[in-house]
Design a protein around this nucleic acid. Sequence first.
DNA 1: GCCAACGTTGGC
DNA 2: GCCAACGTTGGC
Length: 154
Amino acid sequence: MNYWLMKSEPDVFGIDHLKSRPKKREPWDGVRNYQARNMMRDEMKKGDLCFFYHSNCDEPGIVGIMEVVKERYPDHTAFDPEQKYYDPKSDPDNPRWYMVDVKYKRHTKRTISLKELKEFADTSLAECPLVRKGNRLSIMPISQEQWEFILSLE
DNA sequence: GCCAACGTTGGC
DNA sequence: GCCAACGTTGGC
């Protein structure tokens, strides 16, 4: 099993949105970055666990845990000109963008803030892209050691 | 294949 | 709202 961290803006789609969905699950659509896509397309497996990270908000940080419940399939929002994430270069016969479905598991007991996580940028989280300067990846792998360390801060 | 211009992300 | 960092695009 693998671990991941996935970013979303709480004003657009936050963890409470996910929790209130039917069956508490939702397609993780709108990813338009090749690195992030490759991870969803090639590596994310059913049963993998993900940190839900709130970005672009008052207190950026990890707010909960979710699980991959459906492996990669084409992101159909790329095919629809009415959609915000429309991409005319994505052909339904050869989709450029993929997504997975995720399901809410739980909130963390508190927000584990980016500020706090950065305190470990030179130690336990030295290899974690999240605490690296200029990191913009919206989906990133988390090692088991990092996962357990972060949860120990809870 | 290089790289300037442009667009986006996301912390602050 | 600002802007640094980074990704993408497209001319050459």
